[in-house]
């Protein structure tokens, strides 16, 4: 919205053009830096600590993840752009937790200064609000996860740690599945997804265990095809930002 609708008038076109140029250039530079640093860590582990992991294993893991989330990688930036505007895109997709934290932060700031949605004031307010949110986010992570969390891990009984390690995955996925189903509001698609997944997990995999590597990709593809070919006539709603935190 904000990026397209308001044609700059002569009075503030220079200042806003300057803002766009700065945020675009530095947004890209900082995002590329963030990207490289975040991949450097695991690559160091893989290749420099003598773990003996072949590139093939990395490619297979990457392919398996891409087959599952590849569509989301592209769709998410597309659907958030009209809400965030260009400058905030570079902030949001580096900081993360967009829908549950950054969007509310931006909206509250806009309301508090009475900025009309889509206006240049609103765009600036969003960027500033996300900066404020980022500061709080970094501080709380450093204190509660970095310091407190590390201390907690060191004093927690080993049995609790063991249980956490073994069962945190099903607890995360149970909650996230419900969250996805409720927030997408597509009952038909949900039924297809559960059916396809049940067939894959309880029928196909026991018969052909070697498909384990691509089981999620099969389920994703199957769900998309069924949801598309059996879509209802009134499902053509506006494409909403899809995000699961």
């Amino acid at each position: 919205m904000s990026s397209i609708t308001s044609a700059p008038t002569t009075t503030h076109s220079n200042a806003m053009a300057d803002f766009s140029r700065t945020t675009s250039r530095w947004g890209q530079i900082t995002m590329i830096a963030g990207l490289l640093i975040s991949v450097a860590g695991p690559l160091y582990l893989v290749f420099a600590t003598g773990l003996d992991i072949g590139p093939a294993q990395l490619w297979i893991a990457f392919a398996a993840v891409a087959a599952t989330f590849g569509i989301i990688w592209i769709v998410e930036p597309l659907t958030y752009y009209p809400i965030l505007g260009p400058a905030a895109m570079y902030q949001a997709f580096m900081i993360g937790n967009i829908s549950n934290k950054l969007l509310p932060a931006a909206l509250i700031a806009q309301t508090n200064i009475g900025a009309k949605p889509g206006s240049k004031r609103a765009e600036l307010a969003a960027v500033v609000a996300i900066c404020g949110a980022a500061v709080v986010h970094l501080i709380s992570l450093a204190i509660f996860v970095g310091l407190l969390g590390s201390w907690l891990i060191s004093v927690i009984p080993p049995s609790v740690l063991l249980v956490t390690r073994l069962y945190v995955l099903p607890t995360v996925l149970g909650a996230v599945l419900v969250q996805a189903i409720v927030s997408m509001k597509q009952p038909r698609t949900t039924v297809f997804a559960l059916l396809v997944s049940a067939v894959v997990v309880f029928v196909v995999l026991p018969l052909v265990p070697s498909l384990a590597m691509v089981s999620t990709a099969i389920a994703v593809l199957g769900t998309i095809l069924l949801a598309w070919f059996f879509r209802g006539k009134n499902t053509i709603t506006e494409a909403k930002p899809i995000h699961i935190e």
Partner: peptide
């Protein structure tokens, strides 16, 4: 509207 939700 349909494809991303179905994928997720």
């Amino acid at each position: 509207a349909i494809v991303p939700a179905a994928a997720l």
